[in-house]
Simulated assay, not measured.
Amino acid sequence: MNTSAFHAGTVAVIGRPNVGKSTLVNALVGAKVSITSNRPQTTRHRLLGIATFPHGQLLLVDTPGLHREQSRHGGKAMHRAMNRAARGALEGVDAAMLVIEAGRWDDGDTLAYDALREAKVPVVLVVNQVDRTKDKTQLLPFLAEVSKDRDFASVHPVSALKRKGLEPLVESVLKLLPQQPALYAEDEITDKSQRFLAGELLREQLMRQLGAELPYATTVEIERFEEEPSEKTGAMYRIGAVIWVERDGQKAIVIGKAGARLKEISTKARLSMEALFGCKVFLETWVRVREGWSDDEAALKAFGYE
Rank of each mutant, 00 (worst) to 15 (best):
R39K: 15
S34P: 05
I14G: 02
I35D: 02
L48G: 01
K21V: 08
L60R: 00
A27R: 03
V25N: 07
V33N: 05
V29P: 05
Q70D: 15
V61Y: 03
G15S: 04
L58C: 05
K21D: 09
H73E: 15
R39W: 12
H67D: 04
H67E: 11
R68S: 15
T42M: 09
N38Y: 01
Q70I: 12
E69G: 11
A31N: 13
I14Y: 05
P17Q: 13
H67Y: 07
L28Y: 08
R39I: 10
T63H: 00
V61A: 12
P17M: 13
V13D: 06
E69R: 15
S34Q: 05
T43W: 01
L59Y: 00
R16D: 10
T42W: 07
L28E: 02
L48I: 08
T23L: 03
Q41F: 12
G74H: 09
T63C: 04
Q57L: 06
G65K: 09
N38G: 15
G65N: 09
S22I: 11
L60C: 02
G49T: 05
V33L: 01
A27C: 06
R39Y: 10
L47R: 09
N18R: 10
P17G: 14
V13A: 04
N26W: 01
L47S: 02
P64T: 01
G49W: 02
A51N: 02
T52E: 12
E69S: 14
H55K: 14
G74Y: 08
P17R: 12
V25E: 07
E69I: 15
L48S: 06
T23A: 11
T63M: 02
L58F: 03
R16I: 12
S34D: 02
G49P: 07
N18D: 12
L24K: 01
I50L: 11
P17E: 14
V19A: 05
T36F: 06
G56P: 05
H55T: 14
N26H: 00
L58K: 02
H45A: 04
K21N: 04
D62V: 00
T42D: 01
S37N: 14
A51I: 00
P64Y: 02
P40M: 12
P64W: 00
Q70E: 15
G15N: 03
T43A: 11
Q41G: 12
T23W: 03
V11A: 08
